[in-house]
Design a protein around this nucleic acid. Sequence first.
DNA 1: TTTACTGCAAACCCTTTGCAATTCG
DNA 2: CGAATTGCAAAGGGTTTGCAGTAAA
Lengths: 145, 145
Amino acid sequence: MVKSEEVIEELKKIVKQKGLKYTEQREIVLNVLLHADDHLTAEEIYNLIKTKRPDSNIGIATVYRALGFLEEVNLITSIAFGADGKKYESNTKDHHDHLICTNCGKIVEFMDDEIEKRQDRIAKKNKFRITSHSMQIYGICASCQ
Amino acid sequence: MVKSEEVIEELKKIVKQKGLKYTEQREIVLNVLLHADDHLTAEEIYNLIKTKRPDSNIGIATVYRALGFLEEVNLITSIAFGADGKKYESNTKDHHDHLICTNCGKIVEFMDDEIEKRQDRIAKKNKFRITSHSMQIYGICASCQ
DNA sequence: TTTACTGCAAACCCTTTGCAATTCG
DNA sequence: CGAATTGCAAAGGGTTTGCAGTAAA
């Protein structure tokens, strides 16, 4: 687990390196995800910002643009499932996959070394240069059964 | 691999059992997927029907409704990735996961027993009643490297 | 000063819905 | 006949874009 400040620093570095501008809005969006212990949609992030920072007059379009940018530079990742559209999380956590309750939407993270190894092997066998993977197990969680 | 006619028969059975009506449109949509060797979006299916069956005056809404129905009764499945929205395939093939080329969009199917077993175990450990899973490995295929 | 970035609103795409007409049972 | 299904067009939801104004370098 990486510290929030370090990630913010990294954002500053990336922005500078690309000759872009550092703005409060991008920082706020990243910060929300750094402190969320859940996967959030663009709209949820927007609403959170509206609530927690009523002074910052951010627009939903800016949230989308920031999310796109942050995902592009790999500071955050997204998964898409169901009808909720994309859900984002910060990319500072260790790699993991997702168990998703199709009833209440709850997401549990997990990680299995053997599965990871086998994925690499499968990609190699098919002559794919693997860049990432995404694995979701869908089911009904204990409290929804 | 199951024969197309058998699946069509199954559709007839399901429809009758549910007290619904058997329509040519649902059959056409299912048939397109049974003969596709690729994963298709709703719009691709719609366009295919328009081309191959110019006489059938089907509407895009009907395609969506048919796809929803067919997925509900488990004759087809869908995966969502990238910006293309849901892609459908018939459910008569044996279970498999997907290797996806992020450059050309090519999809390679694979299956690994050990991964399947481990998924079941992980779900059990987290007290999830597993209903399905979806696993995609993203990378660059041989011909795109 | 220059250029990227922003907020707003309109546009956009894909999907769903309301409805009158149609078809199946 | 009665109910499910259809095609059409309009509505919907989520996301993107054009633009004039704003703010970072």
